[in-house]
Amino acid sequence: MSNTTIVVGLDGSEAGARALAFAKERAKLIGNCTIAIVYVIEWSPFSFQTPEENEERHKRREEELQMAHERVLDPAVDATKAEGFEVIGVLQHGDAADILDATAKKHNASQIVVGRVGARGLKERVFGGVTGRLAASASVPLTIIP
């Protein structure tokens, strides 16, 4: 049982990798600290779908999970473990800001680390990206890595 946990948001981008690097640094300084690496597949239960999409949804979900494990999460978890850290990997569908915060609560984390990604689309400009929403709602200290 480690003293504390740092939650890191991974999104397969450079910024996510920098966030993980920062978290490792912190964890090393804290000592006996678990790193929870979180990868979220953006998904909303309130989207509109065709009957065919619904029929295949379960299958697609399995494929999405498998792909995320293989390409992003597992390599990051394995590499971090290999460096001697205690690591938890979390992979879930949903809203990234919600899930990062929920993970932090669940593991009693001391902070959340995410990479900053520039606003990408109109929706993000209006409603704010994951980092923006997390900054507004996180229940633990949040570090945003530029």
Partner: peptide, 9 residues
């Protein structure tokens, strides 16, 4: 999460 929700059905 990620499966067909009641809302979607």
């Amino acid at each position: 999460a990620g499966e067909v929700s009641h809302f979607q059905a």
